[in-house]
Each structure stands twice: as C-alpha cells, then as structure tokens.
Simulated assay, not measured.
Amino acid sequence: MVKVAIAAPGEVAREIIDGFVASGKHDILILARKDPGPGEHIQGTTRLTVNYEDKADLAKKLQGVHTVISFINAFGDFGSVAQLALIDASVEAGVKRFAPSEWFVAKHDRLTWLAGKDIVRKYLEDINKDKKVLEYTLFQVGLFMNYVAGPKQKTKHLSRNNFLFDVEHSRALVPGSPDHLITYTAIEDVVNIVVKAIDYEGEWPKIGGINGVTASLGQGIEVAEKITGKKFAIEVLDISDLKASLQNASFLPQIDHPAIRQLDEATKTGFIINAYTDLMGAIVEGHAVVSDEWNRIFPDYKFLGFEEFISKTLA
C-alpha cells in the first residue's frame, strides 16, 4: 500500500478516484484548490486544500506520497504554472512517480488550446536529462469511447458529450474521409489500467499509451449501425476549410465540460467550433492514434471493444 495524490478532482479524476477507493489498496490524497463543499467529501480519501503558488507548503503536503497523478486543466492553467509547481514540489518531497495531466491524444500540434501539455512534457524531459529525478508516464488514451454514446453513456462523473458520430441520433460528421483512424478507450478501462499501474513494479514507460481500440470513423459507424439497426446519415466535411464546413454542418457536436459551462452561449459555441475544427485537423493528420505501452505491460487485460461497449451502453 502506498500513498497516491490526485491533483484537481475533476470528472476524469473522480472516475479514477472511485477506482482507487474500490480497490482498497492505497491511501488516496486529493489535492484541491478549494475547501470541499457540502457533499463533496469522498469516502475513503483525504482531501487537502492547496495553493500552487506556495511550493514550499505544497512540498510539505506531498511528504510521504509515492505517486502524484495530475488532472490540472491544461486550458485553465496558463503557461502550465500550477502543474510545473506541482512537479517541483513532487521532486522536493521525494515523490517517486508522476503522471502529468494528459488523458487525450498523442500529439497536440493542431490543438493550440492544449499547448500547456507540451510545456509540461518538455519540463519533465529537461529535469530528467542528466539523471532520473522523477519517474513519469504520459497516460495517453485517445478519445473516451464513452463520448460516442452521448447522453446514453452510463458513467458516474464523466460528462455526457457526443462526438463526430452520434449513436443516439444515428448521424455522423466525417472530416474528408471515413478512413481516418482514431483511438478510443472506455473510461472504465482507463480507470482499471491506472489502478494497476500503481502496483506495477517495473519502471513506468515515458509514453504510456492506453489503447482500447484503434479504428476508422467508418468502422465505428458500421459497428454502431449493426448494433442499433439504424442507417447513419453521414455528412462529409471539406478538409480544405474545416471550420466553415463545421459551421455549416447539420449539427454541432457538443462539449459539456466544467471549464466552459459558465460561458455565455455565443462564446461556448465559438469554443466548440474551434476545438472541433482543431480536433478534426488532428484526426486527418493521424494525431488521434495513441500507442499501447500499457496494453503490452498488462497483456492479459481485456479492453472493451466498440461492439461490446455500444451493446452494453444501449441495453
């Protein structure tokens, strides 16, 4: 049993915290900027209020922690100031392992709103350049398979988004071609692998791909049509001007995320259009495919496939 600190208890973090609590194996410390509100205490965990501008106090609170797992919001942490402070405090406190706030695709070249993730990657590389100071892994999962099911997904904390193909309404937006590949991983599998990773006795891989299934948009749509028995309305978007094509599409995929819920509708819509334009560009360029390092470390673990996932979700 070790002490694991979870920084920024948002939606994905809450799913993973629940996984740790259910396993009963480790002491779970939650690092949050605010004191817990009514009903926010999570049974089986200890919550500490932290100030990322006070690295000395942060390091003090990390004393005795074995692993830090970060979920600090990349597009709310300008310049990655908070996450870099968390790394520094972890080194000072003698933390053994660190997982930065990744939880998405492998490359962010087209995703300007996630540039902070690359700042953190480089910082971790630099502090380990001459000798290993802090063992770390980049948990990369592609897109959460759960978003394919939209409002019908059965998760406790993860927002009910829809994506480029919308199972509930049997429709799809395809940037250029249905042959572009995407890695999808169910949040349930992400939780299970992260919990297992704490007990892994070998060195964590720097690139930590968790690959549920890599499939083309077309293959995903075919599976959804098979399970639902409904033909999808497929709308092909012009990749030469994805933003205009998306603005004129028959529907706009939604993003329900705490970081944008308080925005007015016009600002929110603008963000969603820009985010999906960037994401579709990344898909076209092959950046939405992640590797499978953790799959190979745990070869006996069976990941949810599309057919099993959609069947279970729509049941």
Rank of each mutant, 00 (worst) to 15 (best):
F298A: 05
P253M: 06
E15C: 04
E40K: 08
G24T: 06
N162D: 15
A5K: 00
G79R: 07
S177H: 10
K96W: 07
D118R: 05
V120I: 09
L29E: 04
R121K: 10
A282H: 04
L31M: 06
I260S: 09
Y200E: 08
D189M: 10
E168R: 08
G202Q: 10
G220T: 03
G286A: 11
A315P: 07
R261G: 06
L31R: 07
K55T: 14
K243I: 04
F306P: 02
I227H: 12
G176T: 15
I28T: 00
K152D: 14
K302P: 01
G142N: 09
P178N: 01
R160C: 06
G176C: 05
T277P: 08
A93L: 09
K131M: 09
I273H: 10
G281N: 08
A59K: 12
F298S: 10
R47C: 03
F78H: 13
D264V: 12
A186R: 14
V65A: 04
W204Q: 01
R160D: 00
Q219K: 13
E53N: 15
V190G: 09
N295K: 13
G44M: 00
T49D: 02
V65Y: 01
L31T: 00
D27W: 02
W204Y: 08
N162C: 01
Y52P: 02
L124S: 03
D199E: 14
L237N: 06
